[in-house]
Design a protein around this nucleic acid. Structure first.
Length: 435
DNA sequence: GGACCTATCT
DNA sequence: GAGATAGGTC
């Protein structure tokens, strides 16, 4: 028992309850259990205490019905800074409890709080700390421990749990479970850059990258180099050679691009501020172009559209191989800040600006530190005029898109079916170059 | 089982 | 509406 007390004494609890009687009595009980207690009436007060970072708290206990309506905000903040939160309420309400747990609460307890409950609190805190430590270890040692963890020893419990699910449901074919299991076993996701982080057993949605004009240009360059019929996410990703960028992200962008659903940040901004910008959904006659499922927008058209919206420089007149040296950095957006803190003024203003602190860095941000001069990224560009010959239709066509000297981006199946007549001599459908 | 693709979600 | 994710298909 003495050893328990030693642990309990070390725990600093921030108690938040607008019900003064409860506040006082719970404080007394906590102190009787040897916890160090700081108590405040309002969640907003607690929030500013937590925000200041001083003093450090090991546990927050909050009456979620705080009259200043900041109870959930406090919960969210504490969860974000990895402080376990115990939510209290006078109501015995399952929805309330579920809501709190979904937001990351460690426990939901109905008031009044008893001594027995409080005596056990330290165990929850310790367990939570261990979980966080484990997560951190896993992230830090991801690469190093990859081989070890494949043995399944490190996450045995979870693996067994997953195995039980699989054994119990042999018909399950979904990839969500498979991926989750794989990440538990390996400690990494399918692509380590896109590892979903588990926060309080919730899969935290990965921070968004922003496809800036410059990043998109790299994408386009890759597409152009690959040519028609070879524009697959993996190939594009490899050609782009952007550290930290994942195949899924490329795939997602490719989808948006193919469906003509992507607009450069600059274009979005101008569209918001001004009259409707020239939409790529309309043809020259101003008619809305019916969306052909799987149809690919013409690259030339896209290039023109996007370059029109670019901030032009004195190098605008330069030929293709005259791209100025630029630094491309994907802008990482916190999902909450997404679309609200668009760093549309370009990468140089993004995370290096005075307000960079308002845009927390994505854990893998360092992957995105590019060399100042990335001329090398365009090393193939000067030879691209010839490269464009790959897979393009040089003949005039009744379809305006077909008149582009640039290849269009087609799906594998689309391209495959279109070229099947020509490719009858070859069983290979992927990577086939059309002369 | 990896990669692609599309629908759906956030 | 952009980008991430789920899930079906090859």
């Amino acid at each position: 028992m003495a050893s328990y007390l030693r642990v309990m004494r070390k725990l600093h609890v921030l108690l938040v309850d607008h019900d003064l009687d409860c506040l006082i009595s719970t404080t007394k009980k906590l102190e009787l259990c040897s916890y160090k207690v700081t108590y405040v009436e309002l969640a907003s007060t607690a929030l500013s205490l937590l925000s200041s970072g001083q003093p450090h708290f090991d546990l927050v206990m909050v009456n979620i019905n705080s009259p200043d309506m900041q109870g959930y905000k406090l919960l969210q903040h504490a969860v974000n800074v990895d402080i376990p939160v115990i939510v209290m309420s006078i109501d015995d309400n399952a929805f309330l409890a579920m809501g709190a747990l979904k937001k990351g609460a460690l426990l939901f307890i109905k008031k009044p709080v008893t001594m027995d409950m409080l005596k056990c609190l330290w165990q929850h805190v310790v367990r939570d700390k261990m979980r966080i430590q484990k997560e951190n270890d896993r992230i830090m040692g991801m690469a190093a421990t990859n081989n070890h963890s494949k043995s399944g020893v490190e996450f045995r419990g979870e693996v067994e749990e997953e195995n039980n699910i699989i054994v119990g449901n042999n018909n399950y074919k979904g990839k969500k479970k498979k991926r989750a299991r794989k990440s538990l076993i390996n400690g990494v996701d399918e692509e380590c850059e896109s590892e979903p982080q588990l926060i309080n057993n919730k899969v935290k949605r990965k921070e968004c990258i922003q496809w800036t004009q410059l990043l998109h240009r790299k994408f386009m360059d890759a597409v152009e180099q690959l040519g028609e019929g070879r524009c697959f996410p993996k190939e594009i990703l490899e050609l782009m050679d952007v550290p930290g960028l994942t195949r899924m992200q490329v795939s997602s962008h490719l989808q948006k691009f193919r469906n003509d659903n992507w607009r450069a940040p600059e274009e979005r901004k101008s569209k918001q501020n001004n009259a409707p910008a020239a939409s790529t959904d309309t043809n020259t006659s101003g008619q809305s172009k019916p969306r052909r499922f799987g149809s690919m927008p013409c690259l030339k058209k896209r290039r023109e559209t996007h370059e029109d919206s670019e901030v032009h420089t004195e190098n605008d007149e330069m030929p293709n191989d005259g791209y100025e040296s630029i630094t491309i950095e994907p802008i990482i957006m916190n999902s909450n800040q997404q679309y609200h803190e668009q760093l549309v003024s370009g990468p140089n203003n993004s995370r290096h600006g005075a307000n960079s602190s308002s845009n927390p860095r994505f854990p893998y941000d360092d992957f995105f530190n590019f060399p100042e001069n990335i001329d090398c990224l365009f090393h193939n560009f000067s030879g691209m005029q010839q490269g464009f010959g790959i897979g393009m239709n040089m003949n005039e066509s009744s379809d305006p898109e077909q008149n582009s000297p640039l290849p269009s981006v087609k799906t594998r199946s689309q391209w495959s079916s279109e070229t099947s007549n020509f490719a009858s001599n070859s069983s290979e459908t992927r990577g086939l170059e059309i002369e």
